[in-house]
């Protein structure tokens, strides 16, 4: 019951914050110089064509009218028509969204699994050579610009060793295709955050391993692996999960670069094209979808606290 109430209140707050973001975006992009008609027509912008196009795109109406038109369409689940591509925004987003979801999930998995393993290893071998080496490696991955990492991965794994393809978009959904096409982009997206996760896991675990109850467990003669994975890990997870929520938002930002380097369709690139072309409906649509993603992820993260640590109360 508490959970239901909690979910509901979260949903309301989520919708509210999405609404705020979309509204800010709606006005921010319109209140500045350079409208999509200029961008679209470029050198061909004769006064007649400008007038025709402005009217055809409904940009001649006052701002508040445009806003209400937008809201009314939104209520019907219609995101409008992309000005540039003249295709419905829902279609354009729907086409690329699955690619983004797969890339995000693969990237998150890589960063969490690699990060936790490296972090746990470093914590257990606290202050050893392996600890220093792995932490240095993590620091390096954190500090390389994303596209350089992408270039390096392509150069090594695709061109030199020919393990994975250069082009990162998967056309079919077979396991083989997914594995082949997703690995490099996901690594490029996930490695940096794996560094963050590893450093965080390590510092948390070092503290847990030095705490009283682990010492008690040790004195009871429990095996090291049991201690690490049963006890220390559980305590690490809570703080890890809260971090992942933030990481997902950062990772969403990393999408633009990763998708560009690996020539993958996706939300990041769609957003980028929309911004460059000042394609208002497409911008609003992609901003909305990204905001929804953020809200949903944050909510899931909060929910999962309860699963990891049943002591937590939803209030």
């Amino acid at each position: 019951m508490a959970l239901l109430k909690y979910t509901l209140s979260r949903a309301v707050r989520g919708v509210l914050s999405i609404f705020v973001i979309v509204t800010i975006a709606f006005f921010a992009i319109r209140l500045v110089p350079g409208d999509p008609v200029d961008v679209w027509l470029g050198d061909y912008a004769t006064p007649e064509l400008v007038a025709l196009t402005t009217a055809a795109w409904g940009l001649d109406k006052p701002l508040h009218v445009q806003y209400f038109v937008f809201l009314r369409q939104l209520a019907k689940g219609d995101l409008g028509t992309s000005l540039r591509a003249n295709a419905s925004v829902t279609y354009l987003i729907g086409e690329v969204f699955p690619y983004t979801v797969r890339l995000m999930m693969a990237g998150a998995l890589i960063s969490v699994i690699l990060g936790v393993l490296i972090g746990a290893y470093a914590a257990v071998r606290h202050n050893s050579v392996g600890d220093v080496a792995s932490m240095t490696a993590c620091m390096v991955f954190l500090s390389i610009p994303g596209f350089v990492l992408g270039y390096l991965l392509i150069f090594l794994f695709a061109v030199t060793w020919r393990i994975f393809p250069v082009i990162g978009g998967e056309k079919t959904l077979s396991v083989a295709a997914l594995w082949r096409h997703l690995t490099l982009p996901a690594l490029s997206l996930g490695l940096g955050y794996a560094g963050t996760v590893a450093r965080m896991t390590r510092s948390t675990m070092v503290e847990v391993l030095n705490s009283d109850y682990i010492r008690t467990a040790r004195s009871k003669g429990l095996r090291q692996s049991t201690i690490v994975f049963r006890h220390a890990m559980r305590n690490t997870l809570t703080s890890l999960v809260s971090m992942i929520g933030v990481q997902v938002i950062v990772m969403l930002g990393g999408l633009v670069v990763t998708e560009t380097v690996f020539s993958r369709p996706g939300l990041g690139r769609l957003y980028f094209t929309a911004v460059s072309a000042r394609d208002y409906p497409l911008m609003q649509g992609s901003i909305l979808v990204i905001a929804v993603c953020v809200v949903v992820v944050t909510f899931l993260v909060d929910l999962s606290y309860g699963i990891i640590d049943p002591r937590i109360q939803y209030t």
């Binding site: 973001i21 938002i249 969403l252 633009v256 957003y271 990204i290 953020v294």
Partner: peptide
């Protein structure tokens, strides 16, 4: 609102 949006995308915008 701004914070819940990826910095990269805000900066691009």
């Amino acid at each position: 609102g701004i914070m819940s949006f990826p910095s990269m995308m805000v900066a691009l915008l």
